[in-house]
Design a protein around this nucleic acid. Structure first.
Lengths: 196, 196
DNA sequence: TATGGATCCATA
DNA sequence: TATGGATCCATA
């Protein structure tokens, strides 16, 4: 998998180990391949043909090996019963959050809103959201989050006044297309195939 | 239908005819009944049993009679191909937006983000989002937008610095429950077909 | 019960 | 093709 864009929405004050966090995340993205055991990510270019759930697994495994905690629950606000974040790294006593968006595009809005809220409440020091490019989106489950569709909203999120924090959105894309590459199965079947 | 809460997120500067807009919207909400032709909204209290699509129709019809334009497309930003807003009223040469949320809760995040963006870009002078209460939500399609689940994010949206504008979220609820009231019919989106 | 999906629909 | 939605799933 390759990184095609890295858009910074908020960067201010002091964020411990920021450059190594960014480096770890981008390196982890590049470890993601398809089919499994191959040396790059080759997607079957069937429109809306591929499921999304298993795609992020190798990235998360790599981050875990670098000290990130997976499926970590953080208390963002007292009245929220928080769902887990995909990955969290503790840096200088503070939490840095990573989300690899595989839900609907509207869910991407919630993901960014949650990271902003977390920074305002000082529950996290920063966050990164990973989204497919529009080119990749065309081969995935209809209406999943994608960089292009979220991008008009970037100017709004840039308005937040955060003292110390970092917020970015990373666009990813397959390395190649091949009609002979297996479709990523949808639903729980895809997960089962990944685990074999 | 009744209005159970009206939470103001942004109120600043000058918004033409604001009090009459609020009054029209709240009056329109109260015209919504179920079953049709009855005098109040009586919901069948089957958990997740009722569809959401037809609920807002009477409210929109009432607003249309008060000069609101329905399913109106506004250019929020140049690079967006905008979807329609549920209802828009022109006041003092400016557009005031109304959305009655019937999608997934994550879609409610997008709806508010869009109104904030519209105010920052000065494409709209204000906006109101209408959401079911948690009590009503329990009888509707699973995971639809609801006031309680969105409320932890209100503090984030209150941070925006808008010169002239109004942004609010209104919570609505059925007037009564009755197991003999007809279920509101569901469509075939999402997993509905898959299940068959 | 609560939260974050994962999927397909309708329509301009 | 692009956008907003509507529906049910998985799991703590």
């Amino acid at each position: 998998m390759k990184v095609t864009r890295h858009e910074v929405l908020i960067k201010s004050g002091n964020v411990p180990q920021l450059s190594s966090i960014i480096s770890e995340v981008e390196t982890a993205i590049k470890t993601v391949v398809w089919p499994l055991k191959s040396d790059k990510f080759t997607i079957n270019p069937t429109p809306k043909g591929n499921g999304v759930k298993p795609i992020k697994n190798e990235c998360m495994d790599h981050l875990k090996s670098k000290g990130w905690e997976l499926e970590k629950r953080l208390t963002i606000k007292a009245e929220m019963r928080p769902g887990p974040l995909d990955a969290v790294k503790m840096v200088g006593g503070k939490a840095f959050a990573l989300e690899w968006e595989t839900g609907n595009i509207s869910s991407s809005h919630r993901a960014v809103n949650k990271m902003v809220l977390g920074m305002l409440e000082r529950a996290i020091i920063g966050g990164i959201l990973i989204l497919p490019s529009r080119a990749m989106y065309n081969y995935l489950t209809d209406r999943v989050g994608n960089f292009q569709e979220l991008s008009p909203y970037f100017t709004a999120w840039k308005n937040f006044n955060i003292k110390d924090g970092y917020l970015a959105v990373i666009e990813i894309e397959h390395d190649a297309t091949d009609i002979k590459s297996p479709l990523i199965k949808k639903g729980t079947d895809g997960w089962a195939e990944f685990k074999k």
